[in-house]
Lab assay of single mutants.
Amino acid sequence: GVTLFVALYDYEARTEDDLSFHKGEKFQILNSSEGDWWEARSLTTGETGYIPSNYVAPVDS
């Protein structure tokens, strides 16, 4: 299955590639091989962008 991640904090995008999000928003991670910045798709907005990996945690299934 796909592991979903949930935002622990609000984040405001600093570049066009970043994804702004709110605490509690859920994400599907598309690429986590880039280190501290993961490519993710928000399940709330459907938008794709980079998120700071230390702002999210796995959702307990």
Rank of each mutant, 00 (worst) to 15 (best):
D36G: 04
S20M: 03
Y9P: 00
T3K: 13
L8T: 15
G46D: 09
G46T: 07
Y55K: 08
D17G: 07
Y55L: 12
W38C: 14
S53T: 11
T44C: 05
L43E: 15
E16M: 06
F27K: 00
V6P: 00
H22L: 12
E34W: 04
E12R: 13
E47M: 10
N31D: 07
I51G: 00
S32C: 04
G46W: 03
D18I: 10
E47I: 08
D17V: 06
R41I: 13
S33V: 08
N31T: 08
T44V: 08
T3N: 15
E25I: 02
D36R: 09
T15M: 10
G35S: 09
V59C: 11
T3S: 05
K26R: 11
S33I: 07
L43I: 13
A40S: 05
L19C: 04
A40I: 01
K26G: 04
G1M: 03
V2D: 11
G1T: 15
T3I: 10
F27I: 05
N54T: 11
S42L: 09
Y55H: 09
V6M: 13
D10A: 13
Y55T: 14
W37T: 14
T3V: 02
F5M: 09
D10L: 01
T3W: 02
S32N: 09
T3Y: 15
W38I: 11
R41V: 13
N54D: 06
F27S: 00
L19N: 01
F5H: 13
D36F: 04
E39V: 06
W37G: 06
N31L: 03
Q28R: 09
T44M: 08
S53N: 08
P58Y: 03
T48C: 04
I29H: 01
L4F: 15
A40N: 00
A13N: 04
G49S: 01
A13G: 05
E47H: 13
D10H: 02
L30V: 14
A57H: 07
E34M: 09
K23Y: 03
E47Y: 06
E47R: 12
D18N: 15
G49R: 01
V2Y: 14
H22F: 15
R14W: 04
V6Y: 08
Y11K: 03
L30Y: 04
N31V: 08
A13C: 03
S42Y: 02
K23V: 06
A7E: 00
V6H: 10
H22A: 15
V6R: 10
Q28F: 13
T45R: 09
T3P: 05
W37M: 15
H22Q: 12
T45F: 02
W38K: 09
E47A: 08
Q28T: 14
L30H: 03
H22T: 15
A7S: 07
E39N: 02
Q28Y: 11
T15K: 11
F5R: 07
W37Y: 07
A7C: 01
S53H: 12
Y9E: 13
K23C: 08
E47D: 08
D17W: 08
Y11T: 01
F27Y: 01
W37A: 09
G24S: 05
D18R: 14
V59L: 10
F21T: 03
S32L: 06
G35A: 10
Y11P: 01
G1Y: 03
W38T: 11
K26Y: 05
F5T: 09
S33D: 11
I51S: 00
F5V: 05
A13K: 09
I51C: 02
S61D: 02
D60Y: 04
K23F: 03
L8W: 03
V59M: 13
V56T: 06
L19T: 03
N31R: 07
D36E: 09
R14C: 05
I51R: 00
F5I: 06
W38H: 07
E47N: 15
R41M: 12
Q28M: 10
G1R: 12
I29W: 02
S33Y: 11
P52R: 12
G49T: 01
D10R: 03
A57G: 13
E39T: 04
L43D: 09
W38A: 12
N31S: 09
G49E: 00
Y11W: 12
E39G: 05
S33H: 13
I51V: 13
R41L: 09
K23N: 04
L30W: 03
S32I: 06
R41F: 13
V56G: 01
A57S: 11
T44Q: 12
S33T: 12
L8F: 03
G35D: 15
G35V: 12
S42A: 15
T48F: 04
G49Y: 01
Y55N: 04
L19E: 01
T3M: 15
A40C: 05
A7W: 00
K26Q: 08
G46E: 11
P58C: 05
D10W: 01
Y55Q: 13
I51K: 00
L19S: 02
E12G: 09
Q28V: 08
N54G: 10
R14G: 06
K23M: 06
F21H: 00
T45S: 13
K26F: 04
E34I: 04
K23P: 02
D17Q: 09
G46P: 01
E16H: 14
D10Q: 05
F27E: 00
F21V: 04
D60W: 02
Y9D: 15
F27P: 00
L30C: 05
E16C: 07
S20V: 03
L19R: 02
L43H: 13
N54H: 07
I51Y: 01
Y11D: 01
R14F: 09
L19A: 01
D36H: 08
L19M: 11
N54P: 03
W37C: 14
S53R: 15
S33W: 04
P52N: 10
L30T: 09
L19F: 14
F27N: 01
E16W: 04
K26I: 04
F27A: 00
P58M: 08
P52K: 14
A13P: 09
P52Y: 03
E12M: 12
T15S: 13
A13I: 01
L4D: 15
L19P: 01
K26S: 06
D36M: 04
A57I: 08
G46R: 11
L43P: 04
A57D: 13
Y9K: 15
L30S: 05
S61W: 05
D36T: 08
D36L: 06
G46L: 11
T45E: 02
T45K: 05
S20H: 07
V59D: 06
H22V: 12
G24C: 03
A7V: 01
Q28W: 05
W38Q: 10
D17T: 07
G1Q: 12
D36Y: 15
T44L: 09
I51H: 00
I29C: 10
S32W: 09
N31Y: 02
L30E: 05
L4K: 15
V6Q: 10
I51A: 01
G24K: 04
N31Q: 04
A40P: 01
L19Q: 06
D17L: 06
K26T: 05
F21W: 00
D10C: 03
T44I: 12
V6T: 10
S33Q: 13
I51M: 04
D60Q: 14
G46K: 11
E16T: 11
R41W: 04
I29G: 02
L4H: 14
D17P: 10
S32M: 09
P58R: 07
S33K: 07
T45H: 04
V59Y: 13
E12S: 13
L30P: 08
G46C: 06
Y9Q: 11
E25C: 08
R14D: 08
A57Q: 14
L4V: 07
Q28K: 10
D18Q: 12
N31M: 05
A57P: 00
E25M: 08
A40M: 05
L43V: 08
G46A: 09
N31P: 03
T44P: 05
N54Y: 05
G1E: 15
G46H: 11
Y11M: 08
T48H: 12
T45D: 03
E25S: 04
S61L: 06
G49A: 02
E25L: 01
A57W: 03
S33G: 09
D60T: 09
T3F: 05
E16G: 07
I29F: 03
L8P: 01
T48E: 09
L43T: 14
R41D: 02
Y9G: 12
G24F: 04
L43Y: 08
A57M: 11
E39M: 04
S32T: 12
Y11N: 05
G49I: 00
Q28H: 14
Y11Q: 03
G24W: 02
I29P: 07
E47W: 05
D60C: 05
I29K: 10
S33E: 13
E16R: 11
G1V: 12
P58L: 08
A7Y: 00
T44H: 06
Y55P: 00
R41E: 14
V2H: 10
